[in-house]
């Protein structure tokens, strides 16, 4: 999934004001780099409880096989990355891990540049791994082969990286996505996308957030990206659930629900039992953005939140579920 681009900047002040409030409340811990934050304990408590809420909803969801829980680190192999079009579509967002692979002579040169404040980063070499741009990407290479009858549903979560430094506290460079991915036939993928779009909207409404479902597009890069955005909208492949955080005119996508058609099935040789390329779909919850929306709308102290929201998210209970 991709949580989409920000359109026009609503107001730089609105961003920095809210970020200041979050920082003073100890919810976010600035690093000095835009979009890179530590999270305070109360922030994490909300993330944890919202995740359990997703888990309860996923277990209660009917209409498909039970969700398999899988967790991948926020890195994927460069070889698998190379099977995707990400470098064509989102070159500006990617993150590649480079490391020092020289010997003593190269090390001397590296440290000489480092000591003199020169650019030493070009003395590093590409490693075998890339930062994960979406939580579902590491799944598909592991799913090569024939799916079982009725396909699969997979529950994923990882940190994902997008290089888009911003003052907007809701636009982080690294953040967590919780995803429920469907692999199956075209009909199964569409049913999953639509069911989770409706369920996600209901879940956020139950948290008393002013949420709307809108047709959206990913932030495809450059000249060709204009067409990719238009055709993604034309085919209604992506919906976002948006909630105002720093701006009412440009609400923030806190979740997105996407149809990938057979893109991943074709790229990674994932087939339905009748031999066709599998179709995939996902819902992705942006955990930091949902948490920020909750703090924005209900206040910076959880104790002040509406009782029904605290009850729904079980925030008054100390037990694990």
């Amino acid at each position: 999934m991709c949580l989409t681009e920000a359109d026009e900047v609503p107001s730089a002040n609105a961003y920095t004001e809210f970020l200041g409030e979050l920082t003073r409340a100890g919810l976010l811990i600035p690093s000095g780099v835009r979009g890179l934050y530590g999270r305070g304990g109360e922030f994490e408590r909300v993330v944890d409880h919202f995740e359990r809420y997703i888990g309860r909803e996923a277990r209660a969801a009917a209409g498909g096989p039970p969700a398999e829980v899988m967790r991948f680190p926020p890195l994927m192999t460069r070889a698998d990355y190379s099977k995707l079009n990400h470098i064509h579509n989102f070159p500006d967002l990617m993150g590649s891990v480079h490391a020092f692979m020289g010997k003593d002579a190269e090390h001397r040169e590296l440290t000489r540049k480092f000591s003199k404040g020169e650019d030493w980063s070009r003395d590093l070499s590409a490693s075998d791994v890339m930062l994960v741009p979406a939580a579902c990407y590491p799944l598909y290479p592991t799913a090569t082969g024939t799916l079982p009858t009725h396909g699969r549903v997979v529950d994923l979560k990882t940190f994902v990286f997008r290089h888009e430094p911003s003052d907007d506290p809701a636009r982080m460079q690294i953040f967590r996505q919780r995803e429920l991915v469907r692999l199956g036939t075209a009909d199964e993928a569409l049913a999953h996308r639509d069911a989770w779009l409706a369920r996600g909207k209901r879940m956020l409404e139950a948290c008393l957030l002013p949420v709307e479902a809108v047709v959206a597009n990913d932030p495809f890069f450059g000249r060709g990206g204009r067409l990719a955005k238009a055709t993604q909208r034309e085919q209604v492949l992506k919906y976002e659930l948006v909630v105002p955080i720093c701006s009412t005119e440009n609400p923030t996508a806190v979740s997105s629900s996407n149809l990938h058609l057979d893109y991943f099935g074709h790229a990674f040789g994932i087939h339905t039992p009748d031999g066709h390329d599998a179709h995939t779909a996902c819902i992705g919850f942006g955990l930091e953005r949902i948490t920020l929306a909750l703090f924005r709308h209900h206040g910076l102290a959880i104790a002040d939140w509406p009782a029904e929201v605290r009850a729904l998210l079980r925030l008054d209970r100390s037990d694990e579920d």
């Binding site: 079009n85 064509h88 060709g224 990719a228 055709t231 993604q232 893109y263």
Partner: peptide, 14 residues
């Protein structure tokens, strides 16, 4: 024809 290859086509035509 896929969305991605349509993008390549458009750029080549331009």
């Amino acid at each position: 024809l896929s969305s991605m290859t349509t993008v390549h086509l458009m750029v080549a035509l331009e």
